[in-house]
Simulated assay, not measured.
Amino acid sequence: MSSQPPSTIELEFAESYDREHAQVCRDVGPVGVLQRLTRWRERSLIRRALKIAGEPGLVLDLACGAGRFWPLLAEHGNRVILAADPSAGMLDHARTHHSSGLLARITLFQSSVFTIDMSENAVDCIFCMQLFHHVRDSEHRLAILRELHRVSRDTLILSLCIKSSHYPQRICVAKEEVEAQFSEAGFSILKQYDVLPGRGAGSIFVLRKET
């Protein structure tokens, strides 16, 4: 068993928020060509992933951080968006980065990622674009996946870094390991997209909940 408790994982999330805050605040300023390409590609793939997931009407953005993807999720006019994060302070911060019109469409609440305060099959789709980039421990990853399986009725969209010798500083996982964990948690893979192949920008998976 890992000696690192779930609470430590969520403290690591909190430590990453200063970096994310800086990133969000830089969004309005000039960015480089590669960064613009990465953002464009990421958003394009998320739109594709949502289509593969059936354009879910009720979505939970888990470990939502500053809400970087809320405008994209809100492009579907009838979509109901829930957003949860382990940090109440981060949720307060997120409210300062979005318009009142967008925030009116989103229900925010504080929640652990290991014990989500929702019933079984509560949402059509869970959306995790940042969460798994902060989970180092394999057992914790599997525990989170099992909790996501409990709460999702149908699909899960997530991003993570597939292990590559070119990016040793990032939290990455071997493709075979994570695919086995998806299956063990009760998910099958509908689609996988590489954001920028060979650039270590991560992969986006669309998973379906198996009965």
Rank of each mutant, 00 (worst) to 15 (best):
G101C: 02
Q110K: 11
I81C: 11
V28D: 09
W70R: 01
L196Q: 07
C172I: 04
E139M: 04
M1S: 11
C128Y: 05
A63F: 06
A84I: 04
P197E: 13
L82E: 10
E210W: 01
D92I: 06
H21Y: 11
G198R: 02
G198C: 03
R199C: 14
L58I: 08
V24W: 00
R136I: 07
M129S: 15
G202Y: 08
L62E: 10
Q169G: 01
I157L: 10
D194S: 13
K163D: 15
S159A: 14
D85S: 05
I171T: 14
P197V: 11
A66D: 10
A88F: 04
K51M: 10
T211N: 11
E139Q: 10
E210P: 00
W70F: 13
K209C: 07
H98E: 09
S188I: 04
Y193E: 15
D154R: 13
L62Q: 12
D194N: 07
E176N: 13
P56L: 10
A104Y: 00
A94S: 15
L108F: 15
I171C: 15
C125H: 01
T115Q: 12
A185C: 04
R68I: 01
W40S: 12
K209I: 10
I106S: 00
L158R: 02
G89I: 00
F13Y: 12
Q192P: 01
Q35N: 12
V80G: 03
D154T: 08
E184I: 08
L207I: 04
L37F: 12
H134N: 11
A66V: 00
L160H: 11
